[in-house]
């Protein structure tokens, strides 16, 4: 009996997941499938400001500190092998391949993703979305689409800024503080970073994360149960689900890109 119950609930969970995925897919399709309008451009710029510009300080400071910590820890390990010169590639490759896209996506989920969910949830619970519909304006195109594109553009930008600032932070610790020769820091770093292998993959990763995090945030807001509890629950769900999705996808992408 117990076994049957568990099986049944597992089945229900699976069905719910598939249904949710279908709804989320339809939402995204409705938002971005049709030709974008010229009128939508100011909305997109405004969202770029809210999603991108307002996350800049967070990304900048986090990138700097993570680069510095990475360099400090790396130096302590590498100096044991007498290869502290390799600090450059260590910092740069960790940031480009993993930490840049992943940490940026996690911070983005917490900063911008939760804000998107709360904003759209609030719009739904104050009937602003219904009101748009009654004005014969499709809320998917008016509300969801500009936010989606803003997220997709912002996150890779932020990841690149994060990585560049992080490498600079590593340079500060390695060269200014620990006294590695600046020339060898850069030359070894440059010799080991590949354009195709590292930078392109960094951008691909952050693009994938951008789509997933923004999508989850928008869907959670769009399907919110329109009351305060519903909104707070949806906001939490956005952060939890998009973080998990980012980490799981990161493993998959790493396996495909570097797993060979």
């Amino acid at each position: 009996m117990n076994m049957t119950n568990q099986l049944a609930s597992l089945g229900r969970l699976t069905i719910d997941f598939v249904v949710g995925l279908g709804r989320a897919g339809l939402m995204l399709w409705g938002a971005i499938a049709r030709k974008p309008r010229i009128k939508g451009f100011p909305l997109f710029v405004r969202q770029l400001y809210i999603v991108g510009v307002q996350s800049m300080v967070l990304i900048f400071v986090s990138g700097l500190f993570i680069g510095m910590v990475l360099a400090l820890q790396g130096y302590n390990i590498l100096v044991g092998f007498g290869t502290e010169e390799s600090l450059g590639p260590m910092v740069a490759l960790s940031l480009l391949r993993e930490l840049g896209p992943v940490v940026t996506a996690l911070l983005f989920a917490g900063r911008a993703g939760s804000a998107l969910t709360a904003e759209i949830g609030l719009m739904k619970s104050t009937e602003q979305l219904s009101s748009l519909e009654m004005m014969a304006i499709d809320p998917l195109r008016q509300i969801i689409a500009p936010r989606f594109w803003a997220g997709v553009v912002s996150l890779p930008m932020l990841a690149l800024i994060f990585t560049a600032v992080g490498i600079y932070g590593g340079h500060v610790v390695g060269v200014e503080w620990k006294g590695i020769d600046s020339g060898s820091f850069w030359s070894i770093l440059q010799a080991s970073v590949e354009w195709r292998e590292d930078i392109v993959n960094c951008i691909i990763k952050s693009l994938v994360f951008a789509v997933v995090v923004t999508w989850i945030a928008l869907y959670r807001g769009y399907r919110v149960i329109p009351n305060p509890e519903g909104i707070s629950k949806a906001t939490t769900q956005t952060v939890v689900q998009s973080s998990l999705a980012v980490l799981a996808l990161d493993f998959l992408l790493t396996a495909v890109m570097f797993g060979r």
């Binding site: 770029l48 510009v53 970073v193 930078i199 960094c202």
Partner: peptide, 20 residues
Amino acid sequence: VGLFLLSGFTAFLVLVFNVA
């Protein structure tokens, strides 16, 4: 927003030409 896009692009150029 313009500055944001510009700094993202700068970061890209730095990574491409200075790091890689």
